[in-house]
Simulated scan of single mutants.
Amino acid sequence: MGRTYDAITDELATWIADQPVFFVATAPLDADGHVNVSPKGGDTFRVVSPHEVAYLDLTGSGAETIAHIRDNGRLTVMFCSFDAKPLILRLYGQATYVRPGDPGWDDLAPRFPDHPGARAVIHLAVDRVASACGYAVPQMELVGPRTRLDEWAAKRGDDGLVAYRAEKNRTSIDGLPAFDAAPSPTP
């Protein structure tokens, strides 16, 4: 059954490391703005400390998470087990991000494998850790990782990714600023 923890325990950190997918949820402060939930994977999540996590943000078609972090910093990360032992785990807190070249990048980025489309590291100061049973989540088997995003990013190259972000990642769907020339906050 559900439980609240004071911090991310060693047992939970090990369980998190075994999960092939996680979800991030954000929302703007504006009540008319869109709530965003985004699936993530590809060995891009790390527990940094019992109250701190980070994940590698890869270039994609949108930039809602960055825009919402800039707007209010709220972020929830959810893991759910699809194997025989059901569990849902949510990490709540205040997020910041660092981009390549920003202060903090050289500390956080080396924790992850290289991905050609890496555009930021999202850093979460965790203030709540809560589990739920997960009994309604289906049991499924993992076939394997997808490689298409890395292949797409590698084909575009650094200059192509910068141009893509300028075209597709400048603002959120609600018009909030996402990736622009403004300096990013540091963790």
Rank of each mutant, 00 (worst) to 15 (best):
L12T: 05
A118T: 13
Y55H: 07
V137N: 02
A17V: 07
D180R: 03
G73V: 01
H115R: 14
K155D: 15
D114H: 15
P100K: 13
P50E: 02
V47P: 10
A27K: 06
P86A: 07
E52P: 00
S81K: 09
Y135P: 03
S81P: 01
P28K: 10
V143R: 08
E141T: 11
P110I: 11
F22T: 03
V137R: 04
K155H: 15
D106F: 08
E141V: 12
A166F: 03
A130R: 11
S184P: 12
A154M: 06
H115V: 02
L108P: 04
C80M: 14
W15Y: 15
V37R: 02
L56F: 01
L161Y: 00
A163K: 06
A95L: 09
G101H: 09
R119G: 05
T171V: 01
R170E: 01
R46V: 02
E11K: 08
H34Y: 03
H34M: 14
G157W: 10
D18W: 00
A67V: 08
P39E: 02
G62R: 15
L176G: 07
L12W: 08
S131T: 13
S184D: 09
T186H: 11
P100D: 13
D32N: 12
G60A: 14
I173G: 05
L91T: 09
